[in-house]
Design a protein around this nucleic acid. Structure first.
Lengths: 335, 335
DNA sequence: TTGTAGGCGTTATCAA
DNA sequence: TTGATAACGCCTACAA
């Protein structure tokens, strides 16, 4: 069916454009009778307001953009869910982009977002290391009055609102928990050793050992890259009786370590405890279920979205928000 | 910084609106010298084109909507990733909505999407059972020339382009695979027994048994609801030696069944084989790794998006597409 | 209670 | 190569 406009309705109804417009917007200036008549005609003409005309006139954008490194990452999926829940309440839509962990793609997306289609941007960086080029593109957005909220993977060198977890404390608490369980040979496996987050967690590990009067052993800190074979390393550590607990940074790694240890014939948690950092999708279904750091992804999403909306609506002060969201431990059967 | 418009640039540069507009759009009618001059001024004025004015004038929408039941579902996350990859190539943005498995929320979202913000809709239904009300809202969208592509959870009673997996064949092939491995006491656990998809899979199960000359035993077909305690059921079946294989519909269920069986002291796959239907995020990291049906979520996403774009650009014929995307088995160590 | 008229910012046609 | 003008569809003072 052909699209119709307010003009078509005016013609068909005999009323003027403005009367029609008011009637369709339920303006009480117009008599109920006229309103109903006009609405009926609008219906029969299959009228739909033109989104862009209306937006141009009213000069509001009801769209928020979000860029995350990877939608397949359970944690980011949770954040997105939280964001969506918060935005939906306020009538904002959410346009999603994925950088696929690539700063180059990320840059292209940010550039594209200058087109004015979004009122604000939520972003978790592909690399949390400062990149001058990315910063330039983001600043560009800001110069057009598009506020930015960074979450989780933030850059310390870029000025904007930021929400992230306390990686130091989360690690510190995790190690403390393991110590309370009587563990003192705790291996720390890190495939993210070269990131800001990885470094903070490492610091938390070191400090927690110190505060529990456990000597730091470099052989128990195991930085590695995702391609590396980490299994043989774990096998060696266990067979030499060097460890009684392992803390892992990511779900894949946590689950395969957990499985490996069971397969090697050790008991979890008695022989070796396993603690996973990021809340994995399967932690509670695996037996023994896996203790993990709850990063409250959904909450973080909601909170970031709220800050962004408040910033858009000028409800925040001059200074940027820089807030650490607390984590908590979900203690299950693996520790 | 204050926002500037083309008019501001005209004033500042001395050129007319139309010259400025053309220059900014790199129109070769305008001399290189003038273009550069104008672009410089635009830059210094922090000019950004008004998205809505431009869209109103050009009358194009570059935005696609997608509604999935649950973003935390790994499969849907994969589909969204595929969609995004396809759309990104064509310059379309993707606005994401989640129905949270609720037809009521779904309806609200669909209603909202009448606002003209999207050029087309991708949807996987909250319930694949026909709902007259949902259908009405979707038809409404169609009447405004917004094409719809249903994927995965489709409704047979609604007319639009559809892409989904061959649930019958996928199950049939899975059972065949188990039979080839010498299994003939195959339990079928289904928390989705009341859905279209659940029924098709059930049919595949029954027919595959028949074709392998195995008698169907109703005690091995176990429909249940998510709240139900299924563990005791499995324990009973195994202790009575009633089964030598289990096929599960969902990742959570698959993983916990897998873990349970190991915990009970059975060997996977020798005592009991485990096959998971939907590709779970952790299947390959668990030991023994889990054989599963590959639903090619990312491919399905790409393909659905392609169909939608083709439909939008009138590249498809009169008839709606109704296509089953083949699945494949990822054979791992659990079978 | 209804109508007139102008403008939101951009782009496209046509004329200069 | 540049400029004048109208139009995209909607909304809203203001007038009637």
């Amino acid at each position: 069916m052909k699209k119709s406009t307010i003009k078509d309705i005016s013609k068909a109804s005999g009323f003027s454009n403005s009367t029609v417009s008011k009637a369709l917007n339920n303006n009480k200036e117009i008599s109920k009778r006229t309103r109903d008549k006009i609405k009926n005609i609008a219906n029969s003409l299959n009228y739909k307001p033109n989104f862009f005309a209306s937006r141009l006139r009213k000069n509001v954008v009801n769209n928020i953009g979000i860029i995350v490194p990877d939608i397949l990452n359970y944690y980011f999926a949770k954040v997105i869910k939280g964001v969506q829940l918060e935005l939906y309440k306020s009538g904002y839509n959410l346009t999603c982009f994925f950088s696929d962990e690539s700063p180059a793609i990320e840059k292209k997306i940010i550039k594209k977002l200058r087109d004015g289609s979004i009122a604000g941007l939520l972003i978790s960086l592909a690399k949390d290391i400062h990149d001058e080029n990315t910063a330039k593109n983001l600043k560009d957005l800001q110069s057009y009055d598009i506020p930015i909220v960074m979450f989780d993977r933030i850059s310390n060198e870029f000025d904007c609102d930021k929400v992230y977890m306390d990686n130091f404390k989360a690690t510190f608490d995790s190690i403390n928990h393991l110590c309370k369980r009587g563990k003192n040979k705790i291996a720390f496996l890190s495939p993210i050793h070269d990131t800001l987050i990885g470094k903070e967690r490492y610091n938390g590990y070191v400090e927690a050992l110190k505060s529990n009067k456990i000597n730091y052993k470099s052989e128990l800190y195991i930085p590695y890259n995702k391609e590396d074979d980490i299994e043989s390393e774990i096998i060696k550590l266990t067979s030499d009786n060097k460890i009684d607990a392992i803390i892992c940074m990511e779900p894949e790694n946590t689950v395969s370590t957990h499985s490996l240890i069971l397969n090697l014939g050790y008991k979890i948690p008695n022989d070796i405890a396993v603690l996973g950092f990021t809340d994995g999708p399967m932690y509670k279904f695996i037996k023994p279920s896996i203790t993990s750091v709850n990063q409250h992804g959904e909450y973080l999403g909601k909170y970031s979205a709220k800050i962004l909306l408040d910033r858009i609506n000028n409800k925040l002060g001059e200074n940027f928000i820089d807030e650490k969201v607390p984590t908590s431990l979900i203690i299950r059967d693996s520790t």
